[in-house]
């Protein structure tokens, strides 16, 4: 249930950024969550609902951009989409691959009114 820690981290970041911007009400928070980032979305949604109560994000909207996993094959130089870190290269079937996207876990933007 590390998703709750992630929600608490988001609240800390937003608290800090809103204070720095001179205060305001958060209308929307936009996140980038890669599909290889080990965040389970059902657990995240549950943690979000409980975690934001009585915080600056209580009434904020949530937009999540899901980012597909991609990898590069070190053997045959193919670039391809992966659903799991252990997916083989579709061109040469090798496992000598490097993950290039999908591990993102970012607060992309905040809308303050």
């Amino acid at each position: 249930m590390h998703e709750l820690s992630i929600v608490m981290n988001i609240i800390d970041i937003v608290d800090r950024e809103v204070a720095q911007a001179g205060g305001g009400k958060v209308e929307d928070v936009e996140l980038d969550i890669g599909l290889l980032s080990t965040v389970q979305m059902e657990a995240f949604d549950f943690a979000w609902q409980q975690g934001v109560r009585n915080t600056i994000l209580q009434d904020a909207g949530l937009t999540v951009n899901h980012i597909d996993g991609s990898a590069h094959c070190n053997d045959c130089d193919a670039n391809f989409r992966v659903d799991e870190v252990f997916d083989p290269c579709p061109a040469c079937n090798g496992h000598f691959i490097r993950i290039t996207a999908g591990k993102e876990l970012r607060v992309r933007s905040l809308t303050i009114i």
């Binding site: 970041i13 911007a21 209308e27 607060v107 992309r108 933007s109 905040l110 809308t111 303050i112």
Partner: peptide, 8 residues
């Protein structure tokens, strides 16, 4: 509205 681009 103010939009803060954080990329954090």
């Amino acid at each position: 509205k103010t939009i803060l681009h954080l990329e954090q």
